[in-house]
Design a protein around this nucleic acid. Structure first.
Lengths: 332, 332
DNA sequence: TTCCGGAATGTAATGGTTTACATTTTTAGC
DNA sequence: GCTAAAAATGTAAACCATTACATTCCGGAA
């Protein structure tokens, strides 16, 4: 069953059928209806491959998502999937690291006509070289200054506000658990944390900043939190750049007989699902993950149309969610 | 840059270039090398769409995954992604419900040449109608008796063994938290639970079986666990068919001043990541999710070759993981 | 030397759609 | 009813690879 069969059955030319299908070009109402009826009755569906070949467009996007085992990604992916669906895109998913060979590979196997990156390192300027080939949008993580659209919250402000909140609660000995990676978000959150302290006149202590493994693993967080908690001047609050790290800090505290939030306040980041599955429910910075995912696809859709000039994308709103894991500092 | 350019540059015909690329047909070593060099130097990559059109094959599979916000899916998807990669498939992901219109839609937009279903309902026999059109493999959940390959653990045995374990610990008042859905796994786990009790001579009590929401939500689990715990003859152990439900039961117990496992033993199912992020670490049935994902793609790959006769797929091994949330029953 | 068979290579049809351009039909103005 | 312009429709080229079939080349047997 091809377009030719439909054309014959409807007594028109293939061009007319094509015009009806694509709803472009002039077709009289009468003819259009006739063709549509034939299409309906025969159950004809245009061949995708032939279409792609001819149109140089696949209506397909590729998502690069490293370790989406991390629950943080799942809502983003859900948003991406839904928005993709709505705009008529199929979405390819590639669960691989962010690296030059990987991107190279994706660009070469021209199956998709756009790319959204759920990863990035701050010094990966080589990415710019690929920016000319296809629309790329960066989501959550990104490489700065290469003129690619970024869908993200304002990590700096979010971290600043989280730290400020701890300060307002009276805490002065505030530590941070970062991650040992080159993610832009890690750097921005660190700076937000530092600037908040500085602006409040609280001196930075190097030993109050520790780095968990690059992938924010629970175990590494647990170890680092222990390090923090065994300091002679034990911090009264911890700002962790991910919920998992925050949870590991709570566990580490508990295992040392410290209670959260009575002895230690903890703030996390991301608001993943299981922040409220145990007490203390985690005070954390929520990101609108689903919307971030959606917007990424929408931005990509725009980008495709205006390529190579990228659309402007505003920061997405974050929100500090007050729950149980942080409370006023009991002075000592 | 098309195959014609390569042919010209190498001084051969397009057929020869094609033969070199696809490594089929006879080509002399000398010519092959010449062609390969040109391909390398020009960076030529065959046009996918043209290939698909001609070969009637896309090297692409679609994954139907409802609500992959559930952390349980992430490892399966990782396995699917990796195996797909290895076998040269691109994987489309569709985060949608399992239903006839959805499947219909996927089958119509012939972008993929195979389908992996991460969902199923026990009475969806209509699926058989699509089984003739393209290879479909069912993963974890499935529709029985329609002759489609199934990649899954033996849910019945796993549930039987989990319950048996509780019985061996001396428990007799063993409740179960199921989910209100038609998943085959739900049914099998229920039967495993029931048969284990029956075989041990423990009478079934209807009020000891409750059903959480169809999507195993934490909140519904919490509510149902509370119902169980407020029974006049409170159960001493709970078998939950998902870790989230088990965690909600632990939380419900804690909120009532009951301690797990001292006052209540709990067994979960799936062994998701955060079963060890809090104490008590969850005793649970582990599924080899990553391997299940991998095998799904491998099975699909086989299926494609032998279509329409499906490959035989054995059960995947499950494992009861003994941790802290279940202990011997303190008789009363 | 001639002839045969297999290996190497080439030619051209094929897959199914979109679309530029050409042609026909309709509409509107007079 | 005639003409010009606009609308509708048709024709055929283009997209780019694969492959059936045809052709050429070459070595070895007779």
């Amino acid at each position: 069953m091809t377009i030719i069969d439909v054309a014959k059955a409807a007594g028109v030319s293939v061009a007319t059928v094509s015009r009806v299908i694509n709803k472009n070009g002039a077709v009289s109402l009468r003819t259009a209806q006739r063709v549509e009826r034939v299409i309906r009755e025969t159950g004809y569906v245009p061949n995708q491959a032939a279409r792609n070949l001819r149109k140089h467009e696949n209506m397909t996007v590729t998502i690069l998502a490293p370790n989406f085992t991390n629950p943080y990604y799942s809502h983003i992916l859900a948003g991406i999937g839904d928005a993709g669906q709505e705009l008529g895109y199929s979405v390819f998913i590639r669960n691989i690291q962010f690296g030059r060979p990987e991107i190279e590979d994706i660009m070469r196997n021209q199956r998709a006509d756009g790319l959204v990156l759920l990863a990035g390192e701050h010094n990966a300027e080589w990415l710019a070289e690929y920016a000319a080939e296809a629309p790329i949008v960066q989501c959550c993580e990104y490489v700065e200054g290469i003129g690619l659209p970024q869908v993200s919250i304002d990590n700096y402000r979010a971290a600043y506000e989280a730290t400020e909140y701890l300060l307002n609660l009276g805490h002065r000995r505030i530590a941070s658990i970062l991650a040992d990676n080159g993610h832009i978000s890690t750097g921005l959150r660190q700076r937000g944390y530092q600037d908040a302290l500085r602006d409040a006149g609280v001196p930075l202590r190097p030993q109050y900043t520790v780095k968990a493994s690059p992938d924010y693993s629970y175990n590494s967080g647990y170890i680092m939190a222990n390090k923090l908690l065994s300091l002679p001047e034990r911090p009264t609050a911890i700002f962790a750049i991910s919920d998992i790290l925050a949870l590991s800090a709570i566990a580490a505290a508990a295992d040392r007989g410290l209670s959260v939030p009575a002895d230690l306040s903890v703030i996390g980041f991301d608001d993943v699902d299981y922040t409220t599955m145990f007490h203390p429910h985690l005070t954390t910075v929520a990101q609108p993950c689903y919307e971030i995912g959606r917007l990424s696809i929408i931005a990509l859709h725009e980008f495709k149309k205006t390529f190579p000039s990228p659309p402007a994308v505003p920061f997405m709103p974050h929100r500090l969610i007050l729950r149980e894991s942080a409370m006023p500092c009991v002075a000592r």
